[in-house]
């Protein structure tokens, strides 16, 4: 453990300053120091995706990325990706397709898919399935997840 230090963060476009062990996972800073609800602790091992945020645009498992590493970078969470008034196409598609059941895994899928579609707006079925491999959904909503990602891709292309 390193000595606590003041770390400046930029989260969802807002500046924050937290005093924390720089080795602490970013997830705990987001949830407990900043007070965000949406990134979730699923495994702490980067195996499930429930804690995923964007760090400088890259989908990143915040349970396995330290708060120290996040300093000076732009962190975007699900709540910062879009709002009901200004939704990201994936969020809109998720509502339209009625995707989540328990909803605990949502951050991983939407944040990962957002990066995927940004890099490859014309991703086909196989590329979507492979691009989302490694994410977990225990409720088994995979069918509607794939439908929603395709719907969002279509909307983004139009």
């Amino acid at each position: 453990m390193a000595a606590p230090k003041r770390i400046k963060l930029n989260v969802d476009g807002k500046p924050y300053s937290v005093t924390a062990d720089p080795e602490m996972p970013l997830l705990y800073a987001l949830r407990n120091d900043i007070g965000l609800d949406n990134p979730h602790f699923g495994c702490g091992l980067a195996q499930c995706g429930a804690c995923t945020v964007h760090v400088d645009g890259a989908a990143t498992r915040s349970c396995s990325f330290t708060v120290g590493q996040a300093e000076g970078k732009k962190v975007v969470t699900l709540a910062g990706l879009g709002t009901p008034e200004k939704p990201h196409p994936l969020q809109k598609a998720y509502v339209d397709e009625q995707v989540p059941q328990c909803g605990y895994c949502v951050n991983g899928w939407i944040m990962t898919a957002a990066e995927l579609l940004k890099k490859n707006p014309k991703a086909d079925d196989k590329q979507i399935r492979e691009g989302l491999a490694g994410l977990k959904c225990r409720c088994g909503t995979h069918m509607s997840i794939i439908r929603a990602v395709k719907r969002a891709a279509k909307e983004m292309a139009s």
Partner: peptide
């Protein structure tokens, strides 16, 4: 009729049990 809880889950605005403080 659509589910009532989905928008909150998708926009990251509905606290879950893990978010109770």
């Amino acid at each position: 009729f659509p589910r009532t809880d989905i928008p909150g889950k998708v926009y990251g605005t509905s606290p879950m049990i893990t978010d109770v403080r």
